[in-house]
C-alpha cells in the first residue's frame, strides 16, 4: 500500500456555493506534499472534510485504504490522522506537559481512566518529555501555554498533533504569524519530522512550500487545478497565471 490518504470525488456544497468540487486526491506514504491555492480556494473546507469536522455532500475519504467518510473526527485521530490549526487552538488553562499528556493518554486509550492519576503514569510522562525535547519545549513544560512565546505556541501546536502519533499529519500554515527570529527553529522542526509520517502542508508561504515539499497540488475554486512535482507546478504557466501571478510571494 503506497497511498496513505485518498479522496474520491469529494464535494461540499453550502447552499448554492460549491466549496469543494469533486476532488480526487492522493497522499503517498511518507509524502511531503503541499496544498496551495489563492485565498478562498477552499483549502480550509477541504481539511475540514478530511478530518471529519464537516460531512461531505458527496464523495469519500480513505485513510490507509479504509473508508472513513462516516467516522467522527476523534475516531479518525485514533486511526492516525492528526492536524494542526492555522490559528492556535491550545488549552488555555494547561501547561505544554498537560496538553501533550492529554493527547498521549487519549492515544493510549486511557482518556476515560479516572482511578489513576496522570502523574504516576511513567509511560505517559516519558513520552511527553521525548516529544517536548523534539519540539524544543523541554524547558517550558510547566509554563502555562498562554505565557509561551508565539513561536513556542506554534511548536506546541505541532507537538500536540504529533503526540497523536499520526501516520498522516495535516499542517495548516504552521509558520503563520511567527516572527522572523523564531522562524528558523520552526522550519527545522518541521523538516525533521520522521519520514514514516506522511505530511500534507497547507501553506501560503512559497518559501516554506519550496523548501519543504516534494509534490504540490493547487486548489482553485474548490477544484484540483494542477498537481505535480515542485518543478512541474512552478513551471506550469496556468498555475503562474492563476496563483503565482496573484500572490506577490511567487
Amino acid at each position: 500500500m503506497t497511498v496513505s490518504l485518498e479522496t474520491r470525488g469529494l464535494t461540499k456544497r453550502f447552499g448554492g456555493i460549491v466549496a469543494t468540487d469533486n476532488v480526487s486526491f492522493r497522499l503517498e506514504v511518507g509524502a511531503r506534499h503541499a496544498l496551495i491555492g489563492p485565498n478562498g480556494a477552499g483549502k480550509t473546507t477541504f481539511i475540514n472534510l478530511l478530518t471529519g469536522v464537516l460531512p461531505p455532500t458527496a464523495g469519500q475519504v480513505f485513510l490507509e485504504g479504509t473508508d472513513v467518510t462516516r467516522m467522527t473526527p476523534e475516531r479518525r485521530v485514533l486511526r492516525g490522522l492528526a492536524r494542526t490549526f492555522q490559528i492556535n487552538q491550545l488549552f488555555a488553562s494547561m501547561t505544554p506537559a498537560e496538553t501533550i499528556g492529554a493527547a498521549v493518554s487519549e492515544r493510549l486509550r486511557r482518556g476515560s481512566t479516572w482511578w489513576r492519576s496522570l502523574g504516576g503514569q511513567r509511560e505517559i510522562e516519558a513520552e511527553v518529555e521525548t516529544i517536548a525535547a523534539r519540539f524544543g519545549l523541554a524547558d517550558a513544560l510547566g509554563t502555562n501555554v498562554t505565557r509561551l512565546a508565539y513561536g513556542k505556541q506554534r511548536l506546541l501546536e505541532i507537538a500536540v498533533a504529533f503526540a497523536c502519533r499520526p501516520r498522516v499529519l495535516l499542517l495548516d500554515e504552521p509558520a503563520a504569524g511567527v516572527p522572523e527570529a523564531e522562524r528558523r527553529e520552526l522550519l527545522d522542526t518541521v523538516a525533521a519530522l520522521p519520514r514514516d509520517v506522511s505530511v500534507l502542508l497547507i501553506e501560503h508561504d512559497m518559501d516554506l512550500v519550496f523548501s519543504f515539499a516534494e509534490r504540490i497540488s493547487v486548489l482553485v475554486n474548490g477544484a484540483l487545478f494542477a498537481e505535480g512535482s515542485v518543478e512541474e507546478v512552478s513551471n506550469d504557466p496556468r498555475v503562474r497565471a492563476v496563483y503565482l501571478g496573484e500572490d506577490e510571494h511567487g
Binding site: 469536522v53 487552538q89 488549552f91 494547561m94 498537560e98 492529554a102 479516572w114
Partner: peptide
Amino acid sequence: SPFGLSVRAVRDNALRARAIGV
C-alpha cells in the same frame, strides 16, 4: 486523572479536544 484532564481539554477548546481524539 487522564479523564479529568480530557474534560478540562473539552472545556478549554472542544475543537482541539476532538482533534486529539477526545
